[in-house]
Design a protein around this nucleic acid. Sequence first.
DNA 1: CTTAATTCAGATAAATTTGTCTGAATTAAA
DNA 2: TTTAATTCAGACAAATTTATCTGAATTAAG
Lengths: 144, 144
Amino acid sequence: MLSKTCEYAVRAMIYVAQNSQNGQMVNIKKIAEKIGSPELFIGKILQGLSKRGFLQSSKGRYGGFYINDNDAKHSLADIVIAVDGDKIFKGCGVGLDYCSEKKPCPIHSEYKTARNQLFNIYKSATLEQFKSLKGSELVMLKRK
Amino acid sequence: MLSKTCEYAVRAMIYVAQNSQNGQMVNIKKIAEKIGSPELFIGKILQGLSKRGFLQSSKGRYGGFYINDNDAKHSLADIVIAVDGDKIFKGCGVGLDYCSEKKPCPIHSEYKTARNQLFNIYKSATLEQFKSLKGSELVMLKRK
DNA sequence: CTTAATTCAGATAAATTTGTCTGAATTAAA
DNA sequence: TTTAATTCAGACAAATTTATCTGAATTAAG
């Protein structure tokens, strides 16, 4: 479903959100370790998201990434769309470009329902929710 | 969601089913044209599915592919799993390997529901349904 | 001011997926 | 029996995705 890049991105954003509670920065090394991703790769991904305004970054010693209250308004769906595009939420279930109510594929209407449900799931999970988690509520994100 | 290979496979199988009504064979050239795929590529894919018993093939002049009544019991879900594996129907929504009821990811239970719904959609679309379609009911499968 | 730790930028490399080429084997029709 | 049309098999190639390398720029601490 999600590309690997996108899975890393979503997990990283959740992790950063969880660790952005009191102005502290999280560095790439820690993020990579905690979400189980290649360090340089998730670095690239977050740098891209940072340039596009999904999170803050600061360079130099003791630098890292941070998700402020405004960034935290984003949902996981926003991140997914930013990284993978909206094909997952809008595309056809058998890969037709033109598929629509008028020219439906064989599973169009049911598939559309499922797709929308999926969208709502990612959409209703906002970074704010993770930012406010405490201690034992924190979510594990290591891949294996 | 589905890989391109899998999208081709599903559309091709639907097309062959639709055209397997009276023992006629459908050749790769025609299939490729009708589903909008590279000819040699869908050829490879169908050869693989044929070896694994998802459809019949016959070589030589006037040869081609055919879906018999037994093959037609397969659902689109069977094809998807044969080609892409079951990650789409079983995998975690944020890419965790261990994600489960016991160690759930942040969207585990809702995601699982959506995943299951998706599975049911592909599962309840069987090739039989396409094999029995007539004339104007036939489904368009060209990509663009 | 120097040093160490970090992000950043651009190039490169490896792995995977998608697509093509070539020729052999098979088959039906003429 | 020859020919033409097809699937089949295995190698190859191109494109995309995933991952790494290198060095520059930045920043805080000592």
